[in-house]
Write a protein that binds this DNA or RNA. Structure first.
Lengths: 117, 117
DNA sequence: CCTTGACCTAGAGTAACTCGAGGCCGGTAT
DNA sequence: ATACCGGCCTCGAGTTACTCTAGGTCAAGG
């Protein structure tokens, strides 16, 4: 798979994929004889996991650590599991933030209604 | 109210408040005879609204526009209302993202369980 | 009187992209 | 045949939204 296809498949942009590879977030991407990247299905699955982690606010430092563990093999699964479970807690906090913001917006909008009527 | 108090009251950091003021996100903050900022209750309420908008991902450009409208007076309320309602839609999308990410994490964690047992 | 702490400004540094310049290569329209 | 086009490459600069540092003022406490 070429980089543009990997981009549409994962949700990341081509620039972001290159950037992630350069900073070590994507292990061992193969190259064709033309020097262009060739993404394996495993690569693409990894990229789309990164997409979701980023989309929900995981810092790159943590993604970096996660990628190193991933590259190191299956004996690192317990630590990877811990990272994902931590992130899941963060998702919970974000959800609460969304709820609170929704409240704030609702109250503000109500005040606007009062002004407009 | 001094800047540090405004910070704890709003959730923003002191540096962020100064930065927001410098870029025009906070209208007319008064100064004491010592040259230090004095935040009115209205200022503080505004800051905490900014806090929630930022926390849930509103870009500064939009916040800037919102601040200009706020400074311009009550006849801009319809446009302000539109901005907040747009943002509310964005919150909805973020919530869906959180859900989808939660799914991805759950599936990944399940796979880890299989490896570990 | 000296230091501590909260505040000030201006400017540099950081995170995470994002874009632009300049260049290679394979395919197709003239 | 050659001119051009699109997709890929690298490297380096630019952007957003902070965040921190350096250097300085001033009021209050030991």
């Amino acid at each position: 798979m070429r980089i543009s296809e990997a981009a549409t498949a994962s949700g990341l942009r081509v620039d972001t994929i290159r950037y992630y590879e350069a900073t070590g977030l994507v292990p061992k991407v193969a190259r064709g004889s033309d020097g262009h990247r060739r993404f394996s299905p495993e690569n693409v699955e990894w990229l789309s996991l990164l997409y979701w982690l980023r989309e929900t606010g995981m810092p790159m430092k943590v993604m970096k650590r996660f990628a190193e563990l991933y590259a190191a093999g299956n004996e690192t699964i317990p630590e990877r599991k811990a990272i994902l479970m931590d992130h899941s807690k963060l998702l919970q906090m974000r959800r609460e933030n969304l709820d609170r913001c929704e409240d704030v917006l609702a109250r503000k909008l109500e005040i606007y209604e009062d002004y407009l009527t």
